[in-house]
Design a protein around this nucleic acid. Sequence first.
DNA 1: GGTCTCATGTAAATAGTTACATGATTAT
DNA 2: ATAATCATGTAACTATTTACATGAGACC
Lengths: 187, 187
Amino acid sequence: MKANKTRYALLGVLSLGPQTGYDIKKFVEATIGHFWSESYGQIYPILRKLVEEGLATVSTRVQDGRPNKKIYNITELGRGQLHQWQAEPTTVSAMRSELLLKLFFGRQIPTTHNVKQVESYRKQLLKLNSYYTHVYEQFNRVDNMNPDDIYWKITLRSGMINSEATTRWCDETLIRLRELETSAPMA
Amino acid sequence: MKANKTRYALLGVLSLGPQTGYDIKKFVEATIGHFWSESYGQIYPILRKLVEEGLATVSTRVQDGRPNKKIYNITELGRGQLHQWQAEPTTVSAMRSELLLKLFFGRQIPTTHNVKQVESYRKQLLKLNSYYTHVYEQFNRVDNMNPDDIYWKITLRSGMINSEATTRWCDETLIRLRELETSAPMA
DNA sequence: GGTCTCATGTAAATAGTTACATGATTAT
DNA sequence: ATAATCATGTAACTATTTACATGAGACC
């Protein structure tokens, strides 16, 4: 219904179990960090809203020496809205690529700069990919068979496939650029 | 230097020739629309800033029956800043995927809903891909050999490779989900 | 002694979209 | 007629990040 996606991200995390705002931040970073992020500046105000709207409840756990914990629980209403949103068709969202923006105007700078640009990007992608691969293997080795496993693997595979594909794009781009360098050197 | 990327997008377009704010919008949509977008709400105020900072100049072309055109030209200073930015290393940016967010919590809804979700996404990707392919062929057929051609092709290839890879991810995801459907039907 | 983690939160800044206002012209 | 295109721009809203404030305990 409502357009705001952060609320659904929070509802999603809460749907897996009660959490504090702090926990949610950690969880998001550790699990869906490769395709989603949330900052405290979003989390705390929106958690309050969720409670106001009856999509979640709070209970305070008093601690001494530490700030009290506020533990959030998703309500049936919240769960309903989450599931409804999950079933709504998703439009392919316009992504924004700073690298492509730089490269699009690449003719104007020495080819070596463009080459370095792509090479540095490629290096980052390889690191990312080996991280994904590592986590994926972890999943396959351990038989913790969490019922959510298949879905988590699905999202991981997306990261792997994407970083691989983009690495291949880097390779063919580097070939194109190096051809340019030899035929009409600019640097 | 400065973090704002819209200014560089505008400088980039202006680096190809004098343009009005209106023209820039059209140009962005038609050429870099698959990896970048700008709205008037960004374009007009930032164009003014560019002039204030000496990165561009304006001249007004009086027209009758129509609002006067304001034609922006990039200055040498602006060109310098653009090129400097183009040479700065680019960090792989965190992307946000609404589809993956939905799927990550997919266990909670009937598998058929997840299947439909991915199928609908796949359809959109195919459309996108055939569009990219079409434009790419156009590039290869005509021998307009614009000096920017190679760079434009490079960014197009990115779109093609990405949509293809993501389509393959959809395929393997659908296999995974359908296996689930037969082994433990939920819908 | 210093920094890291726990745990809350907010203020301010930045980024970006959407919707509107204006008004003539051109194409359907 | 009426819708689209040309061409400017702004106001309001939404989204998001960054940086700070607080304060104790744990770790090095």
